[in-house]
Write a protein that binds this DNA or RNA. Structure first.
Length: 383
RNA sequence: GCGGCUGUGGUGAAGUUGGUCAACACACUGGAUUGUGGCUCCAGCAUUCGAGGGUUCGAGUCCCUUCAGCCGCC
């Protein structure tokens, strides 16, 4: 019996409904820490904390999967400490599923101090200047110790635009890294390793990369290399090109996307999972997502606005506080304001996804998308 | 009544051998933020230096008058 269990994937996916109007789909992702419905938005908690939110609050607002970052936890407090705590979920007391990014994005975002070679990447530790080395094997080893339900292949996220030759070389290397990472993965009964499609905006490269990953047979696939400065049409094409070669019955994860119009378009393209720092980052800077579009709470028009931030939102902030109070807290640079606004933006996106799932199940996703884009004053096209 | 000091944008203020655009900071007003080192980044914000007049090619900077505030003396 035990043998049977060992051959099972720790994370499985099932499509539960396909919208007859749009082709968008709902599904359920089964994980060791519970089932979550898709499409979903995953908040980012880089340092084993979604900035300003408690894990209990996240759980209560149905955050589903929460991200943490391999690179950051490797540097502090170190993966062995997280392992001793019993894994990242126990460490931070989050009861739902978690996912760790591989550190691959940091190769891109810390471009000033890195050197990429076949073996791996040399970084300069921004904390103390130490020279560090991260490889596919090392990334997976760290992620095995951190212990999230879903772990990510170590990839290279290249800037846009890049020379085709570089895009191709990088993508081929990312494929070799995926193979090495898969071979190094020692906890495949407990943690699902997802592959990442790269290839820039070149159709043949995206296709090739996706096909090769599928041959390696991952329990889920991510689409990387988007939201790096390209225009909306290019982004859409990159997602389409990647997705059309992925198996329909496996979860698709679009990395780094969190703007409302981008999320709605991603759902149309059969994306099941998205993550982004956007809601929490812009909240810290006073920008809030509401059913009538983005607003900046700093503006003086909110000084005497004693209405809720968003009357259509059910979050703790909107149920209890006014725009005037948030304006005051933000101008005084009070942490409680940052907390309330972070709570709102995260819950807003989770709620948006809940409404999207309902619309899909009721076969009216296109109508829903158009209504939201209109009321939030996005361009008719979005994405 | 006499003597002294001060008077630059919403605020604190820099600015004397008189010489293009009046420094800087805060505040204020916009904008940005997409696999995260929170309190960040970008842009705008005094045709004008208490008021009036004079000297000068040129005055926030020199002179005169006046007003206001503060301090001291009668």
């Amino acid at each position: 019996m035990a043998e049977v269990k060992n051959t099972m994937n720790p994370v499985t996916f099932e499509v539960t409904h396909v919208c007859t109007q749009s082709g968008a789909r709902t599904g359920i992702l089964h994980t060791p820490h519970g089932d979550v419905e898709t499409p979903m938005f995953m908040p980012v908690g880089t340092q084993a904390t979604v900035k300003f939110l408690s894990p209990e609050e996240l759980y209560d607002m149905h955050a589903g999967v929460v991200l943490a970052n391999t690179y950051h936890l490797w540097l502090r407090p170190g993966e062995d400490i997280v392992a001793k705590a019993g894994g990242v979920q126990k460490f931070m007391n989050y009861k739902g599923p978690m996912l760790t990014d591989s550190g691959g994005f940091q190769v891109f975002s810390l471009a000033d101090t890195r050197k990429i070679r076949e073996e791996g990447v040399t970084f300069k530790n921004p904390i103390n200047g130490d020279i560090l080395f991260l490889s596919p094997e090392k990334s997976i080893e760290i992620q095995n110790k951190i212990g999230a339900d879903i772990i990510m292949s170590f990839d290279e996220c290249i800037p846009y635009p890049s020379e085709r030759k570089y895009v191709e070389d990088s993508m081929m290397r990312t494929l070799r890294w995926a193979e090495r990472g898969k071979a190094a993965h020692t906890r495949s009964e407990e943690q699902a390793l997802f592959g990442i499609v790269q290839g820039g905006d070149h159709e043949d490269l995206r296709h090739y990369c996706a096909e090769k990953l599928v041959e390696m047979d991952f329990p889920g696939y991510a689409i990387g290399g988007t939201s790096v400065g390209e225009d909306k049409e290019t982004m859409k094409r990159m997602v389409q090109m990647s997705a059309e070669k992925l198996p329909y019955d496996k979860p698709r994860y679009l990395m780094g996307v969190g703007a409302v119009n981008d999320l709605l378009e991603a759902i149309s393209l059969n994306i099941d999972m998205c993550d982004c720092v956007l809601p929490t980052r812009i909240a810290r800077h006073g920008t809030l997502m509401t059913s009538e579009g983005r607003i900046n709470i700093r503006k003086s028009i909110y000084r005497e606005d004693f209405t809720p931030l968003d009357p259509d939102c059910d979050c703790y902030c909107c149920r209890n506080y006014t725009r005037a109070y948030l304006n005051h807290l933000f101008r005084c640079n009070e942490g409680f304001g940052t907390r309330l606004m972070s709570i709102h933006n995260v819950r807003f996106l989770i709620h948006l996804m809940e409404r999207a799932r309902t619309a899909i199940k009721e076969n009216r996703y296109n109508d829903f998308k158009a209504e939201v884009l209109h009321s939030m004053k996005f361009d008719e096209r979005g994405f």
